[in-house]
Design a protein around this nucleic acid. Sequence first.
DNA 1: CCGTGTGTGTGGCTGTCATCAAACAGCAGA
DNA 2: TCTGCTGTTTGATGACAGCCACACACACGG
Lengths: 148, 148
Amino acid sequence: MAPKLHLQIDDRSGVPVYRQMMDQFIYYVAGGTLRPGDQIPSIRELAAALGVNPTTVVKAYTELERAGFVEKRHGKGAFIAANAQALTTAEQEDALRRAAKQLAVEATQLHMSTPKVIDVVREELGALSTDRAADEAPVKFAVMNGGR
Amino acid sequence: MAPKLHLQIDDRSGVPVYRQMMDQFIYYVAGGTLRPGDQIPSIRELAAALGVNPTTVVKAYTELERAGFVEKRHGKGAFIAANAQALTTAEQEDALRRAAKQLAVEATQLHMSTPKVIDVVREELGALSTDRAADEAPVKFAVMNGGR
DNA sequence: CCGTGTGTGTGGCTGTCATCAAACAGCAGA
DNA sequence: TCTGCTGTTTGATGACAGCCACACACACGG
C-alpha cells in the first residue's frame, strides 16, 4: 500500500515548500513508484516528519487533488487518485531537462569544467541509490536545512 | 568594462526572480567573468530585457550591495564592488552540488537511468557553450516562460 | 445503544515576503 | 537649461506559511 518514498525539502532553494512536495509526488507517480489507490502519508504525519506546518501539506495535497493526482478522504487519509495520469515521456524528459539546464547554467557561470560537473552528478546519483538500498522504513524524509 | 553575460530567469521554477538574478551575478563573480569595477546593466535596462518590474531588479541589486558584491551609484549606474570577494572553492562546489542533488532526486523519483541523466546534462552544457561562442552582444538575457 | 478516544481532513486568521506600478531625485552632456 | 540617462522611495496586491479551533470517521468499552 505504501511504497518506499524519499521526500526531500530544500529550505534554501527559495522554491515554495508545497511546490517541492507536489513535484516529488508527481514524479513518483510518473516513475511508477506510486500507483492509483496507494495511500500516502497523512497531512499531520508528513508535516511532522518534514518539520513543516500542516497547512503547508494541506496546500500541496489540495493542489494535487485539483490536478487529479490525489484524493483526500475526510477521516480516512489521502490516496493516489484512481485515474492519476502519469506524465508522458516527453513531460518527464522536460522535467529532467529543466533541472539539468539549471545545473548547466550555474556550472557555466562558475567556469566549471564539463567532467567536473559530470563527476558531481554521478556522485549525487550514487548517493541516492545506495541510500535507497539501505532503506527499510516505508517512508523516508529529508530536509536540507543548509549549513551556511 | 562589460563582459558577456547570459542571465537566465525561469518563471516556472518558483524561485523568486530577484534571487535568481542574485545567484547568477554571484556565480559570474566567482567564476571570474565579472571583476571588481565592471559596470553591470542598469536597473531599467535589465528589467526591460528580462521583462520584469524595475523594483525587482532593485531588490536584487540592493541585496547584492548588502552582501558586498555590488555598488550602486545614483545617476551613474551599478558596478561590481571593489572588494567583491569571490566564493571559496568549497562554496562553489557546494553551489554546484546543490543543483546536482536537485537533479539527482528528480531523476531517481522518475526512475531515470544514470546514463540518460548524464546525457541530458552533457547536452545542456554543450548548448550553453556553443551559445556563448555565437554570441556577439555584450549582454544576453533569456527568460524561460515555459510552455505548459 | 451510546460515549469516548484517536486518527483523519477543514477552515479562519495573521504575519511576512515577492512583485508590480508610479511618482521622486541625482548626474551629465547638448 | 533641458533632456535623457541613472538610482530611490512608497504604496497596493497577492502568494506563502504559520497558529489554532473545528468537524468527520472509525474502533473500542461500557
